[in-house]
Simulated scan of single mutants.
Amino acid sequence: MAVENLVLQVDGLRFSYPECAVLDGLSLAWPAGLVLVRGDECSGKTTLLRLLAGELTAQAGHISLQGVRQSEAPTDYAQKVFWADPRSGNVDQLTARGWLGSLPARYPLWDAAALAAHTEGFTLQEHLDKPFYALSTGSKRKVLMAGALASGAPLTLIDEPVGGLDKPSATYLGHALAQVADQPGRVVVVAHYEALLGVPWGTVMELKA
């Protein structure tokens, strides 16, 4: 499949849990821009993100990011991906400031000015010195998304972005996504059950349960 400005390519991806098949022969070719993966509960949205992140291993198929195949060069591939599962407790003992401060060393295209803008836009200043376990669901998601958007990672994965967000933060998220829509060589994939209004999605993928 030929796509101009191709960043991410998936061929014949198959993944099943012991109790059910989730993805069967999925192929896609995404250029730089914003991608919405839309679907109901149990449609495979989070599973797809975890596969793209390398957190799950597919039973068949290949994933390539900027020409780097995940299965052949997993370390190189992983360095190009931002994924922070909002349901995970892996960072619970870290402060928001400490976690955000660890990211520039991992992401060569880190944008400190963007982080400052997202910190203000999501009104995170008062939460930066709190550990993640002390944050509300919405505040935790906002910290993770601020890091994701500032990372500059060629593949940036964001799952269910508005869970627990207040209306002003959800509005800011739309503006922030629009700002990264035209970044060259970068795909920002958002998994959600519906489109966020005002966001210039370049690609929309529908998953069926």
Rank of each mutant, 00 (worst) to 15 (best):
N5R: 14
V35S: 02
S43D: 04
E194H: 14
L144C: 06
L207P: 10
D92E: 13
A73C: 06
G101I: 10
K167N: 08
H192Q: 12
A176N: 10
Y107P: 12
L207M: 11
E206W: 04
K167Q: 14
I63A: 02
L128E: 05
K45Q: 07
L177E: 12
L26F: 15
F82M: 10
G202W: 01
M145P: 00
P184M: 06
K140D: 08
A150G: 10
Y77V: 13
Q125K: 04
L100Q: 02
G54S: 03
V188P: 04
V199C: 05
L34S: 00
E41Y: 07
T203R: 09
L103Y: 03
A116E: 14
D129F: 13
L155G: 03
S16M: 05
S151V: 09
G25F: 12
P104G: 09
L173N: 08
H127F: 13
A60G: 11
L52V: 02
L13S: 11
G61D: 04
V189C: 15
A116D: 14
F15N: 08
V188N: 05
T137V: 14
L34T: 01
L52P: 06
S43I: 05
G33A: 05
A29W: 01
Q93V: 15
G202T: 12
S169I: 07
V199S: 03
Q93G: 12
